[in-house]
């Protein structure tokens, strides 16, 4: 390395230092510490005792762990594709010239800036048995739905509200992707007689695929970490139907005082998210066009 290159390297390092130090201190070190804690029995204020892989072995026998993992997977795998599809559809719609386009963009984005707690507090009276949604169904002559009181309906309701909350965020990302597609492609397609659907499937979808990949990846990572919405809206009920893995991690650590066990679960969650992200990245080669 020449003196000039070395100097540039040092300068680059100096500029990156604040970010790198933060990354190391607040992400890498805690992640390593979490794995170390997962190998201990620790009640937070006492001295951790090394227990090897005992916490991981206990996880395998813990019915609540598997239940919450299943709930989290249900939430993520149902919510993410629907969320992405609706966001893309809305983005395509609101990318066209139409009356009130800016108004609808703002309205759809509003829930994103609303706090999760406020979201849950607003939705709660709407999804009660005698709430607005069942009132609308009754007016249409349809039977009411036990939105959050039935173990079958509670998770779909949470998913519905989760989609409502985040749809604007992903819509804006898709809009940015759509606006990067040159208009000339559509003009040429129109001249060649391509229908709207053909334009969408042959031009829009392939060219927006990097954005779709980003949305699916990020949404999946966030979905696996769902906590606040279920905590405030349903408290994990009824009968644990909406208790997610992160809720159980929180309970185990801060209410049951089992930090080692909670860290073991957190590490498993980290591995699951990592594996799914890698799978998505591998599969992306087949359908994402840069």
């Amino acid at each position: 390395m020449t003196r000039r290159a070395r100097a540039e390297f040092v300068a680059a390092l100096a500029f990156l230092a604040p970010n790198l130090i933060g990354f190391l201190l607040f992400l890498i070190l805690p992640a390593i510490a979490s794995l170390a804690i997962a190998l201990t029995r620790w009640r937070l204020l006492d001295v951790p005792q090394f227990v090897g892989l005992q916490n991981f072995a206990d996880l395998l026998r813990d019915g609540r762990f598997w239940l919450t993992l299943r709930n989290t997977a249900y939430y993520s795998f149902v919510r993410v594709p629907i969320n992405a599809a609706i966001s893309l559809a809305l983005a395509v719609l609101l990318n066209r010239k139409m009356i009130g386009r800016d108004f609808f963009r703002v309205v759809l984005f509003l829930p994103v800036v609303m706090s999760i707690v406020a979201t849950a507090v607003i939705w709660r009276p709407l999804v009660e048995s005698s709430g607005l949604l069942n009132g609308v169904l009754a007016a249409l002559g349809l039977p009411g739905v036990p939105w959050i009181t039935s173990t079958n309906w509670a998770m779909p309701t949470v998913i519905m509200i989760g989609i409502w909350k985040e749809i604007g965020y992903y819509m804006v990302i898709f809009l940015a992707g759509l606006q990067a597609i040159p208009r000339t492609y559509y003009e040429a397609a129109s001249i060649d007689g391509a229908s709207n659907w053909q334009q969408f499937t042959r031009i829009t979808f392939p060219l927006v695929s990097p954005t779709t990949f980003f949305v699916l990846t990020v949404a999946m990572i966030f979905s696996f970490q769902v906590f606040a919405l279920t905590t405030v809206l349903t408290g994990g009920g009824p009968a644990n139907a909406t208790t997610t893995l992160v809720m159980y991690i929180y309970q185990s650590g801060f209410e049951n005082f089992r930090m080692g066990y909670a860290s073991a679960m957190a590490f498993v969650l980290f591995v699951i998210i990592l594996v799914f992200t890698l799978i998505q990245k591998r599969l992306a080669n087949r359908w994402v066009h840069y």
Partner: peptide, 12 residues
């Protein structure tokens, strides 16, 4: 934390 979800299951 163990009992509460079961109560919900019982009454429902």
């Amino acid at each position: 934390n163990l009992v509460a979800p079961e109560l919900q299951g019982i009454v429902s």
